[in-house]
């Protein structure tokens, strides 16, 4: 899967599951201020990403440092490549 496809898949899953306005979903959008998510949504976001991409997210520390939609894109792209490389 190309990186642009991953980004598209993330945006479409989050738009549906969190009722976000697709127009607001730019990479620099902050989750809490711009997208109006809150800390309670983070667990649901982990679940949505896990189900959408079929991997398990165990990087608790890294998740906590995510601030923007672009951070999620970068995290999932990195994770997808890791999964592909692992035997």
């Amino acid at each position: 899967m190309r990186d642009s496809e991953i980004v598209e898949k993330i945006n479409s899953a989050l738009a549906e599951e969190f009722e976000l306005d697709p127009a607001s979903m730019v990479p620099e959008a902050t989750l809490f201020e711009d997208l109006e998510l809150d800390s309670l949504d983070l667990v649901d976001m982990v679940i949505v990403l896990e189900q959408t991409f079929g991997f398990k997210i165990r990087e608790e520390e890294e998740i906590r440092s995510i601030r923007t939609l672009g951070d999620i894109h970068a995290f999932v792209i990195k994770k997808t490549h890791q999964v592909l490389q692992s035997p």
């Binding site: 969190f18 009722e19 949504d41 679940i47 949505v48």
Partner: peptide, 8 residues
């Protein structure tokens, strides 16, 4: 509730 939470 958000759809993601309901589904969960």
């Amino acid at each position: 509730f958000r759809p993601a939470y309901i589904r969960r």
